[in-house]
Amino acid sequence: MGIEFGGLLGLIILVLDIYAIIRTVQSGASTAAKLIWVVVILVLPVLGLLAWLIAGPNSPRT
């Protein structure tokens, strides 16, 4: 049962990371800020996601 739970948790983190990256790219932040956020999310999937939720760019481009 531990393997299935770990796989499901990993899949959920992957989906949330992809969502965070998409929202970051669509944000109105500068290109440099977008690049930094995407790298942080990719290198540190869990911590990067938490940091993005707390301090990431949230304003989508219109």
Rank of each mutant, 00 (worst) to 15 (best):
M1T: 08
M1I: 04
G2R: 09
I3L: 09
E4I: 15
E4Q: 12
E4P: 01
E4L: 15
F5Q: 11
F5E: 13
G6H: 07
G6C: 05
G6R: 13
G6T: 07
G7K: 14
G7N: 14
L8T: 02
L9S: 10
L9D: 09
G10P: 00
G10K: 02
G10N: 05
G10V: 01
L11H: 09
L11W: 12
L11N: 12
I12F: 14
I12A: 14
I12W: 13
I12N: 07
I12E: 11
I13S: 03
I13R: 04
I13D: 02
I13F: 05
I13N: 02
I13E: 03
L14C: 06
L14E: 12
V15Q: 11
V15W: 10
L16P: 00
D17R: 12
D17A: 06
I18E: 01
I18F: 00
I18Y: 00
Y19T: 11
A20R: 02
A20I: 01
I21P: 00
I22S: 03
I22M: 04
I22A: 07
R23V: 06
R23G: 01
R23A: 13
R23D: 08
R23Y: 12
T24D: 03
V25Y: 14
V25Q: 09
Q26Y: 11
Q26W: 10
Q26H: 11
S27A: 03
G28V: 10
A29T: 08
A29R: 04
A29F: 02
S30N: 08
S30F: 04
S30L: 09
T31L: 14
A32P: 00
A32M: 11
A32R: 13
A32L: 13
A33W: 10
A33Y: 07
A33D: 12
A33R: 14
A33T: 14
K34N: 02
K34V: 04
L35N: 07
L35W: 12
I36L: 15
I36N: 08
I36C: 09
I36Q: 08
W37Y: 07
W37P: 00
V38D: 00
V38I: 15
V38M: 08
V39Y: 05
V39G: 03
V39C: 07
V39L: 13
V40E: 04
V40R: 08
V40D: 04
I41L: 00
L42G: 08
V43Q: 03
V43G: 03
V43I: 15
V43K: 02
V43F: 02
V43C: 04
L44R: 10
L44T: 10
P45S: 01
P45F: 02
P45L: 00
V46A: 09
L47F: 15
L50R: 09
L50Y: 12
L50V: 15
A51L: 15
A51I: 08
A51Y: 03
W52M: 04
L53N: 05
L53W: 05
L53M: 13
L53P: 00
L53K: 08
I54H: 06
I54L: 12
I54W: 08
I54C: 08
I54V: 13
I54R: 07
I54F: 10
A55G: 09
A55N: 10
A55I: 11
A55Q: 07
A55L: 12
A55Y: 11
P57M: 07
P57G: 07
N58W: 06
N58Y: 06
S59P: 02
S59G: 10
S59M: 11
S59Q: 14
P60R: 11
P60K: 06
P60A: 10
P60H: 03
R61I: 07
R61E: 07
T62H: 12
